[in-house]
Design a protein around this nucleic acid. Structure first.
Length: 493
RNA sequence: GGUCUCGUGGCCGAGUGGCUAGGCAGAGCUCUGCAAAAGCUUGUACAGCGGUUCGAAUCCGCUCGAGACCUCCA
């Protein structure tokens, strides 16, 4: 297993800290607005990495956080908290904003068939730990207090360590470029960053701390949560390449400053999704929302595309390359994916007549193809090459079907291995299944939600609502049936 | 301005020194009542210039072009 480590810039052999175990941390979203397709690409990348390690038999702990406090609007440390701003603008409690967009995020990832992480901690759930780590950094002399706020002292840190080890930045150059400190700034130097921010009493998100009532800085949450759930040194840290600096650089500084240990052995950065060659981002206004894509209600699309098509489209490129998003490319992906998914449906139905025969050159070809799937995924998660092999395999599957290659002409175990590899890599590793099947699962999920709602309504003796749910579903061809002990089943017409 | 990355055929996109990427689109053929699906065959390529090498899309230099980061972003 080899992967490209952003820390060294080289492809390296993967050696986990604990044999057979993988600890992976990925920076999750700041839940203040809808996730767009660019965001999805990153989480899809790490979903495949998560899936592949599991497929290889590793015991993986995948931690992905939810940032629900501390992420400030531009203008670095003097901006407003993103969640708080949204809450103020929409006259909501911050936690209402958080809940809404967290659920939206989950729903979107489910649509793209991304598995949930092992642990999904939130920043507000770890305020105490963040305060503790901040204290530790002050004790170590790498942080200082000003007017109730605490800042990380980058210059001090850089005397003993290397701030820039990940991003290749040079502190002296950072000090010179960009905007200067202005009178509002409390920081000693412009490169310093906040660990704790004092908040005015009007501020709607604040917690007590030894320094002031306030809230934690953005970078400290990831350090705290990754350390808490994965240890002081863990295997893989991932995220979008745009987080490399300053976010990930700061994480390293915080960890090294607090524990003296290098926190992460392998950094993996996924590249950006672009539109007409430009990064898809909210601020540029060129982002696509998943539902715009599914329904085709976007000016750059002339039709809608299913989530599996999009998943396939993204996997056709390597995670470390930029990927350009266009209607034409999606159209091609849709047709290509259809081919793979047809073969998937087909191969599931095929079974070998039984009987083992002497292996022929065809057996060898088929077994080699299965091996290539592993080789390509083990080579820095090369999903593009893996898909190329799957295309070749889909051709063989069609040959089985048409009789060009009768199943009886190959060995039983060869076929079983081939079949398992195709299905395994399609479904378990790449997370691809036919749109129909995927839709069916989604539909089942949706119906289950309605069943739960109806159950709740019945418990509340709100029969008006419970009957409405049953009747409306019946009108759409879904017949609900109440069982003996409150169980519920349904049939589709 | 600084740091870095990229530039592959009509489109998307793998590939890092010699060995077919792949998908979509195009052309031809097979199968088919028609169509679809499927199968077979096929053309077009490595931004430009120079260098290293027996040999470069792949290494080095320069030029041009695009992008990312340096400020919130996956």
């Amino acid at each position: 297993m080899k992967l490209t480590n952003s820390l060294t810039g080289r492809k390296e052999l993967f050696k986990p800290v604990n044999e057979d175990h993988v600890g992976m941390y990925v920076c999750g979203p700041t839940v203040y607005s809808d996730v767009h397709l660019g965001n999805v690409r990153t989480f899809l990348t790490f979903d495949v990495i998560f899936r592949f390690f599991r497929f290889l038999g590793y015991n993986v702990r995948y931690v992905r956080n939810i940032t629900d406090v501390g992420h400030l609007e531009n203008d670095d440390d003097n901006g407003e908290d993103k969640i708080a701003k949204k809450a103020r603008m929409e006259k909501l409690e911050p936690m209402e904003v958080v809940k809404h967009y967290t659920e939206d995020f989950h729903q979107v990832l489910r649509q793209f068939n991304c598995l949930p992480p092992s642990i999904e901690p939130s920043a507000t759930g770890h305020i105490i730990e963040q305060i503790e780590m901040t204290k530790k950094l002050i004790e170590q002399g790498f942080a200082y207090v000003v007017n109730g706020s605490v800042y990380f002292d980058v210059l001090k840190y850089n005397e003993q360590h290397n701030y820039g080890i990940l991003s290749g930045r040079v502190v002296e150059e950072l000090m010179e470029s960009g905007r200067k400190l202005d009178s509002q700034d409390e920081k000693k130097n412009k490169v310093d960053f906040a660990l704790w921010k004092k908040a005015a009493s009007s501020h709607i998100m604040r917690w007590p701390s030894p320094w002031s009532a306030g809230f934690p800085g953005w970078h400290i949450e990831c350090t705290v949560m990754s350390t808490k759930y994965l240890g002081e040194t863990f295997d893989i840290h991932g995220g979008g390449i745009d987080l490399k600096f300053p976010h990930h650089e700061c994480e390293i500084a915080q960890s090294v400053g607090a524990t003296g240990k290098n926190p992460v052995n392998y950094w993996i950065h996924s590249n950006m999704l672009t539109v007409n060659g430009q990064k898809m981002s909210k601020s540029l206004g060129n982002s696509f929302l998943p539902r715009e894509l599914f329904t085709g209600s976007h000016s750059l699309l002339d039709k809608g595309y299913g989530p599996m098509t999009v998943r396939f489209f993204m996997l056709q490129s390597h995670y470390s390359s930029t990927l350009d998003f266009s209607n034409e490319a999606l159209n091609a992906a849709e047709k290509g994916f259809k081919k793979l998914s047809n073969a998937l449906t087909l191969v599931k139905k095929l079974s070998h007549p039984g009987g083992s025969i002497k292996q022929t050159p065809m057996d060898e070809i088929l077994l080699n193809l299965s091996d290539e799937l592993y080789e390509n995924m083990c080579d820095d998660f090369n999903t593009a090459k893996t898909l190329a092999v799957l295309f070749e395999m889909s051709g063989r599957i069609n040959d089985f079907k048409s009789g060009n290659t009768p199943l009886s002409s190959i060995d039983n175990t060869t076929f079983e291995q081939f079949k398992a590899a195709y299905i395994g890599f399609m479904e378990d590793v790449l997370g691809l299944k036919s749109e129909e099947e995927h839709n069916q699962e989604l539909l089942n999920g949706v119906i289950q939600v309605l069943i739960d709602l109806r159950k709740k309504a019945r418990e509340d003796k709100n029969y008006k609502l419970s009957d409405k749910i049953r009747d409306d579903l019946k009108a759409m061809g879904v017949q609900l049936m109440d069982g003996k002990n409150g169980e519920m089943s349904y049939t589709l017409e």
